[in-house]
Design a protein around this nucleic acid. Sequence first.
DNA 1: ACAACCAGTTGCAAAAAGCAATCACTTGGA
DNA 2: TCCAAGTGATTGCTTTTTGCAACTGGTTGT
Lengths: 167, 167
Amino acid sequence: MDEQHRSGCPINLALEVVGDRWSLIVIRDIIFGNRRHFRDLLTHSEEGIASNILSSRLKTLLDEGIITRADDPTHKQKGVYSLTEKGIELLPVLAQLAAWGYKYLPVTEELGIRARLLHEGGPKLWAEFMDELREMHLGQKRKHKGPSVFAKLRAAYEAVVAKKKRK
Amino acid sequence: MDEQHRSGCPINLALEVVGDRWSLIVIRDIIFGNRRHFRDLLTHSEEGIASNILSSRLKTLLDEGIITRADDPTHKQKGVYSLTEKGIELLPVLAQLAAWGYKYLPVTEELGIRARLLHEGGPKLWAEFMDELREMHLGQKRKHKGPSVFAKLRAAYEAVVAKKKRK
DNA sequence: ACAACCAGTTGCAAAAAGCAATCACTTGGA
DNA sequence: TCCAAGTGATTGCTTTTTGCAACTGGTTGT
């Protein structure tokens, strides 16, 4: 059970934790979609994750201290997943990855809009977003004022979807 | 052969390309270790990559346009792998991943020093480094003057190794 | 009472990773 | 000239991970 690490390199260690095809997808949906329940992550998944894989990933992320799980008072079986600070700080990784994908890969318009805004906003916007995530997941009070980055990203996405529908 | 994408999300598309345990390790060794030959990547790998996996990853990275391969004039069988602009622009992703790993995972001192310097230098240092990489891999002339970031990172690493040896 | 909802688990097949040995060729030195 | 060392891989094999579909056992609302 004592997992041996391949090396003590930070990049390698990070890849051992989130270097697979699904972990960061789950984190992405928690961050940008605010999906907090198992079913929510399962059925709204753009990519169609299987339930056993989702289950296994959530377990790993729990073990690694990237997310936590709490009981939902409204439903005895429902669990609420929240990001830890360690999980929230994966946002810059996701942002850079998204920027790279947006620039070089065949991204669809509606799914690319968030990557664009995040890229244009830069580290300052990321920090604001992380501040909001700390409020949403850790119950800390927001430091920055003004409109929510989360809401702005969502609104931009909805606008693109609406525009495409009209055509 | 026409691979179907799981979705048009930039994060997902990026993960489909480099979201595995080895691709970014190879890129890391090319960038930070300046390893340009198959054998070089194979035998100096900190993590001990197997030859068939290295072979397969290099093929994928070639197909994706992240690296190119040229014949080495000094040896008919030797190939020289170089980064493309698309590959060079993975540096910010590596830097963020390294920063996260450095902060939260059991990184060894000698392998963590580069992550620390890269983090402290921030996007400005990354840009300088990418400028150097364009010189090393694409034959473009460097725009910025002054000491090489590549050399600084290497020197810092050597210094830590030397210090540990003395003890 | 019962259908819909919830968080998973199980069993099985396919794909990928990992390991050791081998291959076909090139180079440099005795 | 010959042969060891070096080159970039490939092959065959086992183990591990992924992916899919069906299922389980409990909860909630009507």
